[in-house]
């Protein structure tokens, strides 16, 4: 590494210092969640906040992995997220790219149409009626289609496409190659960081699907992971104990293990996607 000048060195030290501090603050509570997931109930009850468990146990994880409800909810979440995200990203990038064309007639009306839905929505009852009249209830299609595009993502993605150099388009025009070729063979490869970013956004949203699942699905065996997780974490209101007289308990280790196992796939996938959006694209090289 090349030698840095005094001021730059100070700058670098400062950057590392702040980041390490921030990471330490972020990791501290996470560690607690992790520790409880490996600890016994006695330790949880008696020790308050702790970071290293004295007695190490895998019971929480064993319980979940052996729970048929958990495995089926996990499978459902994977299917929901994989197909949903693919659909999301295709529809969103096509639309965002189209709307990024400044010369397009009706463009600003269409942009406004997208933007308007960010603020105003008809609410869940009429949306439910639409989903129902399309005979989508009780299938994943209800969720995939009704959440196919997030207006926020269209707007932000569009602004990314707009910031791409217009020379790209000009050159394609001169080549005489069509818009589809331009999009598929030039824009998409160049936009990998952007596409990776929005894939992550959609993936996380889909993985966290809770309410739409409750609303559109009736079969308990179609429910995704977040529904399972909430049913574990919910505390029954002690003042209405008459409504539910089934005394049912999860150990704290099982609850925290469920949180860890639910977040794990997204934590694993992050560095993989991150490679793409940290790389930096050589737009300049295309121009030249």
């Amino acid at each position: 590494m090349r030698h840095e000048k005094g001021l730059d060195r100070l700058f670098t030290i400062l950057v590392y210092f702040i980041l390490i501090l921030a990471a330490a603050m972020a990791i501290f509570p996470l560690f607690y969640v992790l520790s409880v997931s490996f600890s016994t109930e006695i330790e949880y009850l008696t020790r308050g906040f702790f970071v290293i468990p004295k007695q190490f146990t895998l019971e929480g994880y064993m319980y979940l992995l052996g729970h048929p409800g958990f495995t089926s909810a996990f499978r459902n979440a994977v299917i929901l997220s994989a197909v949903g995200t693919a659909l999301n990203i295709v529809l969103t990038s096509l639309m965002a790219y189209g709307l990024s064309k400044r010369w397009l007639r009706f463009r600003s009306s269409l942009n406004f149409m997208v933007f308007f839905t960010l603020l105003f929505s008809g609410g869940m009852i009429p949306t439910y009626l639409v989903v129902r009249s399309l005979h989508l209830l009780d299938s994943f299609w209800a969720i995939w289609l009704s959440t196919a595009i997030a207006p926020f993502n269209v707007i932000v993605m569009r602004s990314f496409f707009q910031s791409m150099p217009s020379e790209l388009e000009e050159s394609a025009k001169i080549d005489g190659s069509g818009e589809w070729r331009l999009f598929l063979s030039i824009i998409v490869p160049l936009s990998k960081p952007v596409i990776a970013t929005f894939t992550l956004f959609y993936l996380v949203t889909n993985w966290n699907t809770y309410f739409t699942a409750i609303l559109y699905l009736n079969d308990a065996d179609l429910m995704p992971l977040q529904v399972f997780l909430r049913q574990m974490l919910v505390e029954d209101d002690p003042t209405i104990s008459n409504a539910s007289n089934v005394m049912y308990k999860y150990t704290p280790a099982a609850k925290m293990a469920a949180i860890i196992l639910t977040a794990l796939p997204l934590l694993v996938i992050f560095p993989i996607l991150q490679k793409h959006f940290n790389k930096g694209v050589m737009l300049g090289s295309v121009k030249g």
């Binding site: 008809g122 009429p126 989903v131 595009i149």
Partner: peptide, 19 residues
């Protein structure tokens, strides 16, 4: 390219606006 997204907005966002 815009059409599928457009239909989505009409069906799942604008029709329910009746609400």
């Amino acid at each position: 390219m815009i059409l599928p997204g457009f239909l989505f907005f009409i069906i799942f966002k604008y029709i329910p606006m009746i609400g």
